[in-house]
């Protein structure tokens, strides 16, 4: 590119790409480009870029606007009731479930499909629950850590077996508390942790009546990472918007602490 001899500024050339010039300037740029093939190629590539961006993203405007973006659901005057929240959670979970099921029926291995899809199912629910509750500023948990004993007793009772909240202090995360959630196969517990920067991890625990043991598996959805595994009659998902390695280390620590407790 011979920049010294360019009679037009880069701004003018960009405006040529965007058809944002008066006729006279536009034509003189056009004429100049006829004798400058490399510049012509460059600017035509930019136009092609625009066409491709429009081709790829253009028709998103025609997609129906989802329920969660309807203004009547978002008005500040409207009290955001817990019923609305529950509805939204249910919708998210339902979409996740359907998505997980569809994905599995297409891509999942043919054998052992019931286990595979239910594992994907609870991971999807764990991620959805993480997305909803980790964004909560005021009410991230139902029962906070000051009542940890009560929290664990309550969740253990609901899940029908001892449930523990492992420590993640070594990774800089402290327990905030937890809540009870509803999973497709029964009650589930969510523990929430937070580090000094306000980043949150959640540990989702759900009963697995069929039992079993699996290795750690990784899933990522919408920028959220999750490691999940089944240990005995409980399934676990550690979820966070964090680096995969950091999450793997934390998952390993959780697994070790919990299996030590269960022995």
């Amino acid at each position: 590119m011979n920049t010294d001899s360019k009679p037009f500024s880069e701004d003018i050339l960009q405006a040529w790409v965007d058809n944002d010039l008066d006729d006279m300037t536009w034509h003189s740029v056009d004429d100049w480009l006829h004798n400058n093939p490399s510049e012509a190629r460059r600017l035509h590539d930019y136009r092609l870029q625009i066409e491709q961006l429009q081709a790829v993203y253009g028709n998103i405007v025609d997609a129906p606007v989802p329920e969660k973006l309807r203004l009547e659901n978002l008005r500040p005057s409207l009290k955001r009731s817990s019923a609305w929240r529950t509805g939204s959670l249910a919708a998210t979970l339902l979409i996740g479930l359907i998505g997980g099921w569809v994905a599995n029926s297409f891509y999942g291995p043919q054998k052992d499909i019931s286990l595979a899809s239910s594992v994907t199912g609870f991971t999807t629910q764990a991620i959805a629950a993480h997305q909803i509750y980790s964004a909560e500023v005021l009410h991230p948990v139902e029962v906070d850590v000051t009542q940890e004993k009560h929290l664990l007793a309550w969740l253990s009772k609901r899940l029908g077996q001892p449930v523990n909240a492992p420590g993640l202090e070594q990774f800089g995360y402290r327990l905030l508390g937890g809540r009870l959630l509803s999973d497709e196969i029964g009650p589930a517990a969510q523990f929430m942790y937070e580090n000094a920067e306000g980043r949150r991890l959640t540990l989702y625990v759900v009963e697995r009546p069929d039992g079993g043991n699996t290795a750690f598996r990784f899933q990522k959805r919408g920028g959220i990472s999750a490691f999940y595994w089944i240990d005995g009659t409980l399934g676990y998902v550690l979820v966070g918007d964090v680096d995969r390695n950091e999450l793997l280390q934390a998952s390993t620590a959780v697994y070790q602490e919990l299996s030590a407790l269960n022995q």
Binding site: L53, I60, A63, L69, L71, L74, R75, R221, G223
Partner: peptide, 30 residues
């Protein structure tokens, strides 16, 4: 809203984050 969604979708690279962003935007606008 449709155009905000389109912009957010391309900006965020995935539909979930995009609609969350649009939702936050609409709340703030209201």
């Amino acid at each position: 809203i449709p155009r905000l969604r389109r912009y957010a979708r391309a900006l965020c690279g995935n539909p979930d984050d995009a609609d969350d962003l649009v939702q936050d935007c609409l709340r703030r606008a209201l």
